[in-house]
């Protein structure tokens, strides 16, 4: 009887199966969902991803060329100006007897694939393990933090942007030094939420939000965004803080992969906000934040420090001579 019913109503049976499977996937735990997604991507969609990268390279050449020409001109002017400032910076540091900061490298990369979803939670870039890009590396643009590398193959890497629920960032209000965890909440517009901030803390609309460096996933001081709205949660215990990201995730074409010599290193001045000197940096004890608040829930273990910059990387550091800094340094000043 059941067989007859199924035979007569095949279309409804297919619908029930499809909806049942969809619901089953939706109610899975997050890590199980990730496992299923990983399996499907690696078994079925590998060739498609490669084709997607090729297509974007082919189609984007004209636009990229125009964009890069303009950018090159602007950067040349900025580089000349920065050369003088770098020398001045070195002289002043010497005068103040400040310690040299650790060098870091930035690997420029192009976006070759995008999320099929309208929210754009992931990207594919054209640099991989061969260029020193590994899982967990921070991804930046001159505007601020983009996200982190989720996984890397030899010549490509997949990026989780901040608009992905698996990409949480230890963040700090720059003005009041209040710590929290920045995470996108599914179902809203492309805005972020700063969580685990007590209702007693000093946070106002318009405050800048930067990475705190806690958890060693992202270096401290990278611009994340601006506080758009502050309210209290229904219990009145915690603040609900909405943050507008500094980066426009929809129009990303070139990004920078941060390769630290040590993750506690310094920050590129254009990307990272000015960090107060140690004597001035008195972090406000934040919220009754849980101990996990400093790392992403599913954050991978931070990779070991890179022994040396990858080939083609833009290496920087106060101690480095000016000649060692490429003119393609995307306009970032020496820390």
């Amino acid at each position: 009887m059941l067989r007859n019913l199924l035979a007569r109503r095949t279309d409804w049976t297919v619908l029930v199966i499809a909806c049942g499977l969809s619901f089953s996937l939706m109610v899975l735990e997050r890590h199980e969902q990730a496992r299923v997604a990983w399996f499907i991507q690696h078994t079925l969609l590998g060739p498609f991803e490669a084709a997607m990268g090729w297509m974007d390279s082919a189609v984007g050449v004209y636009w990229d060329n125009q964009h890069l020409r303009q950018r090159l001109t602007r950067l040349q002017i900025e580089t000349d100006a920065l050369h003088g400032e770098r020398q001045e910076n070195a002289r002043l540091r010497q005068l103040l007897k400040l310690e040299e900061r650790h060098p870091y490298s930035l690997v420029a990369s192009s976006v070759v694939g995008r999320s099929l979803d309208r929210l754009g939670g992931s990207l594919t870039i054209d640099k991989g393990i061969a260029d020193g890009v590994e899982a967990g590396r921070a991804i930046l643009t001159p505007d601020g933090l983009v996200g982190r590398v989720e996984r890397a193959t030899q010549h490509q890497a997949r990026i989780l942007t901040l608009l992905h629920r698996d990409c949480a960032v230890a963040a700090r209000i720059d003005r009041s030094r209040v710590d929290g965890v920045m995470q996108w909440e599914f179902g809203t517009q492309p805005v972020l939420n700063l969580r685990y901030v007590s209702s007693q803390e000093d946070v106002k609309a318009g405050d800048l939000v930067v990475t705190s460096g806690l958890g060693d996933m992202f270096p401290a001081g990278i611009r994340i965004g601006t506080v758009a709205r502050v309210s209290l949660d229904p219990n009145g215990l915690m603040k609900e803080i909405t943050v507008r990201p500094a980066v426009n995730f929809r129009s990303l074409e070139e990004i920078l992969v941060y390769l630290p010599s040590t993750l506690r290193g310094s920050a590129p001045a254009d990307l990272f906000l000015e960090q107060p000197e140690p004597t001035a940096a008195v972090p406000t004890p934040s919220a009754p934040a849980p101990s996990t608040s400093t790392t992403a829930p599913s954050a991978p273990v931070p990779p070991p420090p890179a022994a040396k910059p990858a080939p083609g990387a833009i290496t920087k550091g106060v101690g480095a001579p000016p000649e060692s800094v490429s003119s393609e340094s995307t306009g970032m000043a020496t820390p």
């Binding site: 499977l21 939706m26 997604a37 999320s115 979803d117 929210l119 939670g121």
Partner: peptide, 19 residues
């Protein structure tokens, strides 16, 4: 499902709506 693999939301949401 293909779209869900790339989406930041829960796996299965696009699959359900498109089915």
């Amino acid at each position: 499902l293909i779209q869900d693999l790339d989406a930041p939301g829960p796996l299965g949401l696009n699959a359900l709506s498109k089915s």
